[in-house]
Design a protein around this nucleic acid. Structure first.
Lengths: 191, 191
DNA sequence: ACAGGATGTCTAGCGTTGCTAGGATGTGGT
DNA sequence: ACCACATCCTAGCAACGCTAGACATCCTGT
């Protein structure tokens, strides 16, 4: 009873991740509008209803992909911050890394920030990876700075705006570097 | 022949606008996910296919709403800029106005900046109202400043980020004023 | 060892979506 | 008066997210 149900549990967890990966890969290959429950089911080689035995619905699948994405983002930003030579350059390094992430993985970024998800932001039940990503920005400012959370919000929002407007072609794709440079220079003076 | 076909032309143009207004009102009342071609057709008291005799598809209707929105935004920003007591305060006034617009008319703002549309940004065929909105930001900076277009892009992107992240609950709704204040103070030094 | 029950999976289908083909209706020009 | 044309609607297609209910499979208790 125990060994068998444990194996089933493992298989179930494995399949859970398989669905998430398949959704992300399909989105990265053909965009989120191509991610339908039918195609996703076909891809994981199960029928549609099994998706619903793992997730409450399509939005929940997108949310799971997004949550995964936040873990990756947090790790990516953390690495960039710690690789920065001096604390003064941390903000610039993290900001560049953030934009790289958004540019290199547009579909993943969309799941995290544009598509409707059931993720709770900025509240008590905020998932750890979300908070961790945000904290990478916070930690770029002096610990004694009372308004570092505010600074982090603004820099994050600004980077998000730059990322999303250029992704949707609303500002030219080139010149990103110049924009970040200017932005960071202006913000950094408050560090 | 001529008078009659002219009248028909007028009626057609009127119905064209009616569809756009109905789409916007429906979206503002119940959100864009409630704007289906069926409900929209019912609202304008025609059958579905007439929508397609006016627009290439649903995206084209959204685009038309968005274009209308840009005209309104340009006017709104222009008024705010010219009402500013001194040129130094223009940027702050326009930025505040921008965020007000986004906050007060979330559905319209979504059509302009989030939903997929066929509008061409930052190119030769960019519709006038789009360029006009953008120029309101550009004109907040000194005419002799070579990088004023860059400044405008960054401030616009930052405001967009603030607007959209707070609309989707990714940053707290309150504290908007503080964020804009901080942002403008930092950017304005480049004026 | 075998019936009974629980678990897991699939087929089939519901209601809704964006969009369109083809017929009915009615007006305008000759 | 009649034909031609333009306008509009009914009906339906394929694809969507999601679910009910049948079927099969495996574990458990006697």
């Amino acid at each position: 009873m125990s060994a068998i149900s444990e194996r089933r549990e493992r298989e179930r967890a494995h399949r859970h991740q398989l669905i998430i990966s398949a959704a992300r890969e399909l989105a990265e290959a053909e965009g989120w509008e191509a991610v339908t429950t039918r195609r996703l089911a076909e891809r994981v080689e199960y029928s549609q209803p099994v998706l619903y035995s793992h997730f409450d619905g399509k939005d929940a699948i997108v949310s799971a992909v997004a949550l995964d994405g936040f873990s990756q983002l947090a790790a990516y930003l953390s690495h960039a911050r710690q690789a920065a030579p001096e604390p003064e350059h941390a903000l610039r390094a993290v900001s560049r890394a953030y934009l790289e992430f958004a540019t290199d993985r547009p579909a993943l970024y969309q799941a995290m920030f544009i598509l409707p998800t059931d993720l709770k932001f900025a509240s008590a039940e905020t998932p750890v990876p979300l908070r961790a990503s945000f904290d990478e920005f916070v930690n770029c400012f002096r610990p004694d700075s009372e308004r570092r959370e505010l600074f982090a919000e603004v820099i994050w929002a600004a980077l998000h705006g730059i990322a999303v407007l250029s992704q949707s072609g609303r500002i030219p794709a080139d010149g990103q570097e110049e924009r970040v440079d200017f932005l960071i220079t202006q913000i950094a003076s408050a560090r």
